[in-house]
């Protein structure tokens, strides 16, 4: 690395590895109506998702749900917070539809002046299918931050955030990891 290109992996950035958010209880429960909408949208007709009698005869012993369906429960807009969609369009009729929202359990930002964000990939580890009626508890963590050097000789960061999902019995359901490139 030349003198002009300073490392992006500063001590402050390195200190973020392992930083963990609070455990957050997702809004609502895993319910059959959410399950129906989700499985129809992903186009999975598996009767294990709706036929209780059949599902009880399988190794799972009950109706199951797609493993990462619960990951979208963690991004639900809670009714006990200000609605970011309403606010976004009040502020800007050309809003992208996302709005700025601080979600419970969010990690603090990585202190870098690299602002361009690109999706670098995802990982899934699956241990148990969530059950109907489950409450979902999730926790975020910066599991890894690495530095790479681009073709232009400039350093960039690959930041990996890990989210662990458990149910009300503290059973591990799944772990997801999302890596983003910061240039």
């Amino acid at each position: 690395m030349t003198q002009e290109t300073q490392s992006a992996l500063t001590p402050e950035v390195q200190a973020m590895i392992g930083v963990t958010g609070e455990v957050v209880e997702g809004w609502g429960i895993v319910d059959e109506e959410y399950l129906r909408r989700f499985t129809q949208a992903v186009m999975d007709p598996d009767p294990r998702y709706w036929d209780h009698e059949f599902a009880a005869s399988t190794k799972f012993g009950e109706v199951i749900t797609p493993p990462i369906m619960v990951s979208y429960m963690s991004s639900r807009i809670r009714p006990d917070q200000e609605d970011p969609i309403t606010r976004a369009f009040e502020e800007n009729p050309m809003s992208d539809g996302i709005g700025r929202v601080s979600r419970p359990g969010s990690l603090p930002p990585v202190p870098t002046n690299l602002v361009r964000v690109l999706n670098a990939g995802n990982e899934l580890e699956i241990y148990k299918y969530p059950s109907i009626g489950d409450k979902i508890f999730f926790q975020n963590r910066y599991s890894d931050i690495r530095e790479r050097v681009g073709r232009d000789g400039r350093p960039f960061l690959i930041i990996t955030s890990e989210t662990t999902y458990k149910n009300q019995k503290d059973e591990l359901l799944c772990i997801t990891r999302a890596s983003s490139i910061r240039r």
């Binding site: 989700f38 949208a41 992903v42 999975d44 598996d46 399988t58 190794k59 797609p66 493993p67 990462i68 369906m69 979208y72 999706n119 670098a120 990939g121 995802n122 990982e123 899934l124 580890e125 699956i126 990891r177």
Partner: peptide, 28 residues
């Protein structure tokens, strides 16, 4: 996110009825 949700479905179906779709990693 839709592509990401197809992956465990695809692996589940391959491993049914008694196997397990343990893990996956992929890029977009």
């Amino acid at each position: 996110s839709w592509k990401q949700s197809v992956v465990p479905q695809f692996l589940k179906d391959f491993t049914l009825p008694g196997g397990w779709p343990w893990k996956a990693r992929f890029e977009h």
